[in-house]
Design a protein around this nucleic acid. Structure first.
Length: 736
DNA sequence: TTGACGTATCTTTTT
DNA sequence: GATACGTCAA
């Protein structure tokens, strides 16, 4: 960050504030990381023991960076700080207190379940409860997550549930939680909620921690949820030195339970709290800042502050309207390339920010086409890749045989001829009282209940036993054993994308070796925990010269000389899902504010007049739309619009009126936003024609792929969209 | 028991 | 468009 050589008055006040609760309202680029690190360094310099300092960061990367900076001032003592994410710190406490967890888990070496594991558990739960899973899985899972973030227990939820959905969700929550406990697993939300619940059950434990931490600091405070707030409160209670830094204008995680009341009510929650505002921005040019300020000023629900900068006005922000997502990708790539050539800049100076992961595809294709290096952050994270999770599941099972989710995952992966017949035997044993499927399998084998896959099953059990016996060894060697014994690489050969998968397996082993080098005496359990809590954003490599591609959410806390914000269309950014309520719309605006304020010198905004995208309910359609209102909220004199595109005469559209209104889901629904041209590409003459299908009846052709007898038609029948081979269609009525 | 094939569902954002 | 899942035939 372009920081001042010395602190400004407000920063100094924050760094040196003597004691008691402090709320620092820190605008984007106002040097809050600097304040946090200098404050911690000061505390340590004045004699505070590092193990008495607890700091919460939003990402592991932020924790690492902050620790490194502090290390430069105070040296090795930095290693003893308690510094990490809420989840990492919660985990650390749970591991220390594992003997006191009581009803929370049944296994000392508990594992962490990620989203995929949670879904598998919930599927089993719903099946057991005879709740139809279709469409209910997602909502119930997020309802459970909401409950935990709000510290609502299963009993409390059941008691309060009235509506049918709520009752079903409460029932699912109860059984889900029992299942996790039986399997010795915690999900992400448990890592925080279970700590608070432990503190409530055992006040003396809470008190011990409150006495331990003389200083509690929180970064990105605006994104804390209720459970996190309670955790901070409990840990900071001893000394009352709770120092939180946040920006209400950058709260973008309300869907994860983030609650702005934590900021707005801080002063009443912590009586006598000092309030310090950091309003000088050291990052962005005057124009970028003015644009960001103008946009965020449209939000009503904010504490209000005005960022200012001593930096030069700088270049105007630029806006390009592309024809479609491919054209948009070309413009973005050209911008980055041009910038790199013109200024001798690096690709790494540029980041492309978007609302949804799906948008990365077109940009990736274009960058690859031009031979430009890029790094994609997010999407399917490394530790969630199938091959990675397969291998880790073996290790999970080795340290925690109760991890039934891992068991079922690997029982027949790779294929070893163990199928439904064996599964039925195992389940019968479970019903008869076997503690977990691995034990049940052992019983099935000793009772010689199966003959067909007996040998394979025995060698599977043998492998797990061996791994369990060697659990104290470094993980890399154990992974190598697994890979070799199950012939994983050979199995991958025949699979789709085997090269990439093999590379991932190799990277996994390399990362495991690295882990062992850094954490010499750490066991398998902590290796697996770390793997579960690492995110893609934590793996961003410093120093590589490549364009970064990431969601606006993932860009939080980062900065770049040039930022491209892509896909600025109504319905995408702001997202259609968020246009129902003013509160959600304001969150989208904050997200846009976060995106723009990542930029130091240059901002390129882009939109596509026409975009292929998935819209719920109407299938995969071609949506035309309007430019995002956020672009229009930027004062005209700050924005340079590239080649305004006007709507072409209607004959360009083909023979009918079937234009944006027919295809586009979100056109014109919500005022604001400049209408844009809708210029379809490569439209077949068949598009717009009325056709007839035996089963679905009358429909309209939306798109065509291929030609002749093999042509596949995308046809809209009323509200549903189907892809159908041409020979199953007959001509309805002629339009041309 | 496996693999081919068709269909439903997904995508808003993440620890 | 991709993936996961169910159904069907071999």
């Amino acid at each position: 960050m372009a920081s001042p050589l010395s602190l400004n008055d407000a920063q100094r006040a924050a760094v040196n504030h003597p004691a008691g609760p402090v709320l620092v309202l820190a605008g984007a680029g106002s040097g809050k990381t600097r304040v946090l690190t200098q404050r911690i360094a000061r505390l340590l310099g004045e004699g505070t023991r590092p193990e008495a300092v607890l700091a919460f960061t939003f990402t592991n990367r932020a924790a690492r960076e902050m620790r490194e900076r502090i290390e430069r001032t105070v040296g090795d003592a930095a290693a003893r700080l308690w510094m990490g994410t809420f989840h990492g710190t919660g985990l650390r406490i749970l591991r220390r207190e594992v003997r006191n967890l009581g009803p929370a888990t049944r296994h000392p070496d508990f594992v962490i379940y990620d989203r995929e594991d949670q879904e598998k558990v919930l599927d089993e739960v719903l099946k057991r409860l005879a709740i139809p899973a279709e469409g209910a899985r997602g909502p119930i899972l997020s309802r459970i997550s909401d409950a935990k973030n709000a510290l609502v227990t299963t009993e409390e939820m059941a008691n309060a549930a009235i509506a049918p959905f709520e009752r079903r969700a409460a029932e699912a929550y109860r059984v889900y939680q029992e299942t996790l406990r039986d399997r010795g697993a915690f999900d992400f939300d448990d890592l925080i909620a279970e700590v608070v619940w432990l503190f409530r059950r055992r006040p003396e434990i809470a008190e011990a921690y409150a006495r331990r931490f003389e200083q509690v600091l929180v970064d990105e405070y605006q994104d804390t949820n209720h459970a996190q707030f309670r955790l901070v409160e409990a840990l900071g209670r001893g000394y009352g030195n709770v120092f939180v830094v946040g920006d209400d204008d950058q709260m973008v995680f309300s869907w994860r339970g983030a609650d702005l009341r934590n900021v707005l009510d801080f002063e009443s929650a912590f009586p006598g709290a000092a309030l310090i505002r950091l309003e000088q921005n050291y990052r962005s040019t005057g124009n970028i800042l003015a644009a960001a300020n103008a946009v965020i000023a449209n939000n009503r629900d904010r504490k209000g502050k005005t960022l200012w900068s001593e930096r030069e006005e700088g270049a105007l922000l630029r806006f390009v309207l592309a024809r479609d997502e491919n054209d948009e990708a070309r413009r973005i790539a050209a911008f980055i390339q041009g910038r790199a050539r013109r200024d001798g800049g690096r690709l790494a100076d540029c980041a492309v920010l978007y609302r949804t992961h799906a948008q990365s595809r077109a940009i990736e294709t274009e960058l690859r086409h031009r031979g430009m290096a890029y790094e994609l952050v997010g999407g399917v994270s490394f530790y969630q890749r199938r091959e990675v999770k397969d291998l880790l599941a073996y290790l999970r099972l080795a340290i925690n045989p109760a991890d039934a989710t891992a068991f079922w995952r690997v029982l027949n992966t790779p294929r070893r001829g163990l199928g439904d017949a064996l599964k039925a035997r195992i389940e019968a044993r479970l019903v008869a009282g076997a503690p977990h499927p691995l034990a049940a399998l052992g019983q099935v084998l000793s009772a010689r209940e199966i003959t067909r896959g007996a040998e394979a099953a025995a060698s599977f059990v043998g492998l797990i036993d061996e791994l369990a016996a060697r659990a104290a060894e470094p993980p890399a060697g154990l992974l190598a054993t697994v890979v070799e014994r199950i012939g994983y690489l050979t199995w991958l050969e025949g699979q789709e994308g085997s090269d990439e998968r093999r590379a991932n397996v190799e990277e996994l082993m390399a990362a495991a070796a690295e882990f062992a080098a850094v954490n010499a005496d750490a066991g398998l359990a902590s290796y697996l925990s770390e793997a579960a809590l690492l995110t893609d954003a934590d793996r961003i490599e410093e120093g590589a010269d490549r364009v970064l591609l990431l969601t606006a959410h993932n860009a939080k806390g980062l900065e770049f000389p040039a930022v491209i914000v892509a896909g600025l269309e109504e319905g995408l950014f702001p997202h259609a899902q968020s246009q129902q309520s003013p509160a959600e719309l304001e969150e989208e605006r904050r997200l846009f504010y976060v995106a723009v304020t990542r930029a130091q010198d240059e901002v390129l905004l882009s939109a596509a007049a026409f975009r292929h995208r998935y819209t719920a309910g109407s299938g995969f359609t071609a949506a035309g739309g309007q430019v995002s209102r956020f672009v229009d909220e930027i004062p005209g004199h700050l924005l340079e619009r590239d080649q305004p595109v006007r709507a072409r005469p209607s004959e360009e559209y083909g023979s009918d009126r079937d234009s944006a209104d027919e295809h586009g889901a979100d056109r014109g629904r919500n005022g604001g936003g400049m209408p844009v041209a809708w210029i379809p590409q490569r439209r077949s003459r068949a598009v717009g024609r009325e056709v007839y299908h035996e089963e679905f009846g009358r429909g309209v052709v939306v798109a065509v792929e291929g030609s002749g007898g093999e042509a596949r038609y995308t046809v809209r029948f009323g509200t549903r969209i189907k892809k159908i081979l041409g020979r199953f269609l007959s001509e309805g009525s002629h339009v041309d």
